[in-house]
Design a protein around this nucleic acid. Sequence first.
DNA 1: GTTTTTTTTGCAACCGGTTGCAAAAATTAT
DNA 2: ATAATTTTTGCAACCGGTTGCAAAAAAAAC
Lengths: 332, 332
Amino acid sequence: MTATLKDVAIRAGVSTSAVSRTFTDGASVSDKMRRKVEKAASELGYSPNFLARSLTTRRTKLIGLVSNNFHNPIFLQVFDLFTRGLQDAGLRPLLVNLSDETDPENSLRMLQQYSVDGVIVASSTLPPYFSKAFRDRKLPIVHTFGRYASSPDVHIVGIDNVESGRMAARELVGRGYKKVAYMGGPLSATSTQDRFKGFEDEMSRHPEIERSHSYADAYTFDAGRTEMLRLLKSNPSEAYFCADDVISIGALSAAKDMGLKVPEDIGFIGLNDMTMAGWENINLTTIHQPITQIISSSVELMVAMLEDPERYPEARLFPCRVVERGTLRPRP
Amino acid sequence: MTATLKDVAIRAGVSTSAVSRTFTDGASVSDKMRRKVEKAASELGYSPNFLARSLTTRRTKLIGLVSNNFHNPIFLQVFDLFTRGLQDAGLRPLLVNLSDETDPENSLRMLQQYSVDGVIVASSTLPPYFSKAFRDRKLPIVHTFGRYASSPDVHIVGIDNVESGRMAARELVGRGYKKVAYMGGPLSATSTQDRFKGFEDEMSRHPEIERSHSYADAYTFDAGRTEMLRLLKSNPSEAYFCADDVISIGALSAAKDMGLKVPEDIGFIGLNDMTMAGWENINLTTIHQPITQIISSSVELMVAMLEDPERYPEARLFPCRVVERGTLRPRP
DNA sequence: GTTTTTTTTGCAACCGGTTGCAAAAATTAT
DNA sequence: ATAATTTTTGCAACCGGTTGCAAAAAAAAC
């Protein structure tokens, strides 16, 4: 079907090694030989088979890109940035959609069967043991949006979720709210846990402010909306820190539907600063997560890991900042 | 490092063929042999290397998933459905982000180097020659969201874009608008061209209705918003058919910002029915594209192509329907 | 023009599997 | 028990490449 190394060798009247060498950089080939081979190769439309090559080189340039956040719009940006970043580094993303799976075994086996050079886990919900399973099998791994630990098992790139919770709390305090709440995503998500921790931590320094918390079922619009509708029936707070923009937007829509004015009657602050948060008909005040930097840093780290698989695990945390839009009342 | 076929063979005290056969279904192995091999394999944690296998079987189960729509939120659903659908069929998506590239050569070469079994092009903007290039190289191909042609070169799965344009036109006519317009995406996008064609076609039957058209730079919120702001400066129409929801939402936000009431002062109908169109704070009337069916049908078709690569190209078009929300005034 | 050194080339083994073919073993028929 | 048939197994070649090593060729030194 497609031309092989041998075909080219025969056509050029040289050995297969010679052909192989002209397509391997850093190999010793004379100019004359190179020209001869390249001529034959282009006549036959030959290009080397990466998979066959990988058998001896033990490098496929395939990177497993594992995620379970296919419902959060922020991940469209994430996939865009990752695919471009990996491509630019000469790597190929093999996409794995975890859906609701939280056991790494299946993905792990599958990715090993495809001999991926490394794995990027892009998820703010999966626990550390998930990515650790990959490291235990000696696969270079980066956990993007992973949970920060002072001595991480694997490379973590993302934000300090606890700190982001504190930041949200400070913001609400600074605006003079007297009754605030945290609305998380699913309780099992590490980001939901950590953001809550920071929020509580900071809030506990202001005992005069009443606080409460609850959780939406998922990081989705509908879950945020449903939870907010529930809360509005009883005794709602003045302002909510929602653990994610998409939840915020759901909550926001619920509040507006119930006839509440934002930010006069009720306030919201989200986290992520996804594209839609800036859409004028949403206009959500939120904490910006620098995902461009997070992802390019993740790719860089992966490239470095491929060079040195023994590289010591590090955590790379990027600072967040509040993006003021229209869902929180002005500072007094 | 990881156990190989040979390791298992030695441990089980049998030939490598025997081991290979126990991991190939349909191969002849006695129960006794199978048990012996499976024991050794599980002790060593062996699982076969797909890439080595592919060298002889000529099947990698890798499918190239090529797209250039990484900015349209609808594609998050598309990726979710595709990755799950392919996984369920035992296939693996190798993601290619085209960015602005419209020449198939690079992707083609790369995908051939990885010996993908087939390619799915998921794009409503790429012209037929793009997917044809793959077919010319004998790669099984499905163009999802591709342009319909009565005798297609490759399998097309999607909607009849021309008809969807007519549908939008009928909807606006039915609501008694007297001055309407089409707002496309980039003029180079086949979907923008076809939807316009249908819109014009239907509208030309109502000469009493004034019509015009223009184009947003891209299928993005900002492009839709910018174009709408421009239109509002001169002499806007009563209602707009926007070629895509994300453009509609941008246009909608521009209209609201300029103090126009929707649907009283100005109407919008989009196309896609992406998740956010249903968000209560957007509430866009739009034409629903049945993407779940489109994608599962695309995957089915790909599976069928892998069985029979000579399969005659067909077009699978799914009907759309109008989803009434709040951006078009009621029928008189 | 020889000898020494450096560069280029081909041979052959290997990467981790699969598979056609024939021999060996197990079944079935006689 | 023997012959005929069917099933199971191993040998060896192959898939499409790479690479260590030694021989051949070219370049440099004498």
